[in-house]
């Protein structure tokens, strides 16, 4: 039977059976599917009126619709909610986990993007990061292994299909839950960290109008917004 939810009832009251059904299906799909859902599969996403309802439902629980690749949808934390959570010190990931994730993002996304191989602002990439590339003296092998396990379990990274050079990782589907603002923030922080003297960095600083904070922390706080 339908879950009777006092939160959503006022929103769904006016909908017909079918519309209500479509909206609930779409809501569940974007919330719980591991990967973004194709727009054509669900009328609740395809139809803009129904999608508006889905968005309203998500807003009630602090989340928002995220458009992926123009054809898919998923959900992520709304920017203001993410900011509030971050301010309150919500940080489910350990320092090591964040460091490993950043390494994967740098090798799989940031570098290919700077080389022009990747375009757009998505944090999806087919360029695998090998275990060798993750080796660093600051993190022991054991710590790294555990961190990779946790990150995989959280969907922040996934195994790449390319096993020619041992196991290798690519960014996980959860990163697609990042809102455009979160994606931009992540990219900004990477630019500030990698090329602080570049004109782009200058522009970013001018836009933010803030002094440079520790880039790692900001970056990761925006990353984990996707970890739902």
């Amino acid at each position: 039977m339908t879950e009777q939810h006092v939160l959503f009832d006022p929103l769904l009251q006016d909908l017909s059976d079918r519309a209500r059904d479509e909206v609930l299906a779409a809501f569940s799909a974007v919330q719980y599917a591991a990967h973004p859902v194709a727009e054509v599969q669900l009328a609740g996403l395809r139809d803009v009126t129904l999608r508006r309802h889905v968005q309203k439902m998500l807003k009630l629980i602090g989340r928002t619709l995220v458009h992926v690749d123009g054809t898919h949808w998923t959900s992520g934390y709304a920017d203001d909610i993410a900011a509030t959570l971050t301010t309150q010190g919500w940080q489910p990931m350990s320092v090591v986990d964040r460091a490993v994730l950043v390494l994967v993002l740098i090798h799989s996304v940031a570098i290919p993007r700077s080389e022009g191989i990747l375009t757009g602002d998505s944090w999806k990439s087919a360029r695998p990061t090998t275990v060798d590339e993750l080796r660093t003296t600051r993190i022991s092998g054991e710590e790294r292994r555990l961190a990779l396990q946790r990150l995989r379990a959280a969907g922040l990274i996934q195994l790449s299909g390319d096993h020619s050079g041992g196991p290798s990782y690519i960014p996980g589907p959860q990163l697609q839950r990042l809102t455009p603002a979160a994606r931009r923030r992540l990219q900004d922080q990477l630019i500030l960290a990698a090329a602080p003297a570049s004109p782009i960095a200058e522009a970013i600083r001018a836009r933010n109008g803030t002094a440079i904070a520790d880039p790692d922390i900001q970056q990761d706080s925006s990353v984990e917004e996707g970890a739902a």
Binding site: M1, S16, D17, D21
Partner: peptide, 15 residues
């Protein structure tokens, strides 16, 4: 019939 929430897989049918 739409009442069965067919889009969601008609979970009520099991009853």
């Amino acid at each position: 019939d739409d009442q069965w929430r067919l889009t969601s897989g008609a979970p009520g049918a099991a009853e």
